[in-house]
Design a protein around this nucleic acid. Sequence first.
DNA 1: GTCTATAGCAGGATAGAC
DNA 2: GTCTATCCTGCTATAGAC
Lengths: 208, 208
Amino acid sequence: MRTGGEETKRKILAVAEDLFSEKGFDGTSVGMIADAVGINKGLIYYHFKNKNDIMISLFLNVIEELSEYLDKNSTRSGDASLSIDTTEKIRQEIGFLEKRKRILSVIVMEALKSEDEDNFLLKCAQMHLNHEIEEIGGIEKSKTTGFSGDNEFLVYEFFTGFVPIIFFVVMKEKWCRFYGCDGDRLLDLFLDSFERTHLAAHMRQTKR
Amino acid sequence: MRTGGEETKRKILAVAEDLFSEKGFDGTSVGMIADAVGINKGLIYYHFKNKNDIMISLFLNVIEELSEYLDKNSTRSGDASLSIDTTEKIRQEIGFLEKRKRILSVIVMEALKSEDEDNFLLKCAQMHLNHEIEEIGGIEKSKTTGFSGDNEFLVYEFFTGFVPIIFFVVMKEKWCRFYGCDGDRLLDLFLDSFERTHLAAHMRQTKR
DNA sequence: GTCTATAGCAGGATAGAC
DNA sequence: GTCTATCCTGCTATAGAC
């Protein structure tokens, strides 16, 4: 196929993403990754400094993709996107996140370790929240005063908006297995709940 | 102190809880636990079958304590508790969960591994949700039809109620460190958001 | 109930041949 | 760029003395 080592590197990342999300970072060995890719253990150390470097690489990919996605789907620069209602926007966002659900699981797992210094989950959240604030700042600047005080808006957006969405994405399959229900149906039910809780509060606040 | 081995066993569990939540289950070795307790590695295998047995033991403790808590604080059997408003009830629940936040982190971490078969997080959630349903069933039986269909109420309770609360408990410290804010203040802000989203939707539904 | 000792293996990482 | 071989450390778990 003549792709040099780039193809191998991509494979390593793809397999690592799978295994890390299945077994956790510490539960996955470099040997397991090598075996699953079908290469030698030593080769991994040609492409990556160490095991941690693989995970960081995956994390940085997500941050980059998320950044691009947020910029592209900004209602400030967008044209057609302005006509899309909020629930549909959330549905699209969930679609985007579901493609990255495996690495998102790892980000959440690692974020829960209290020894974790630079918390990628909170970094992702902050990117997302900054974007939300910009949106509101651009379109409904005058109305944001509804959220008074320091971190009030941040806390609301994070714990009742960001967290349920991320958790929905990473737990969807497990939930369906546990309760024996259909994934598409669950998405609709989730969006309905999300609309009636987080989004409803948003409306009430910004329409003041 | 003459406590036989029970005191040692308790210490092992307490230390394991700390280390598992700091480094994750797979990131913690039996030797690390033994060192932190100040006993020999081998002694751990006298009290527990293997490393996994320690975690399961911790998980079962939580399930038991949660069960007791839910029974005790049921508004059906309770007398004084009937006079407590919902937000205050949530505040108490968070207080209860915060004492178990370390093992809760571990439960969440483990629940995210896709190889995990018996998902303790979903088991805890189900206990909690069953209790919620019973409460409503007992007090406002006739009004629950507001939540039509199969899993609609379950999805709503889990993703917009249970999940934000659990996440608040396990992420509180990290959030405060990241944004440099006060824990008590964050709790108030969270409860405010929770009231305006999850609880507000609840009111609208049950008051139909 | 607690410790010492150790088996036995798997882990991360490196050196060097091809 | 990929593989083989290997180092060495650390791991889980057990056996047996005290």
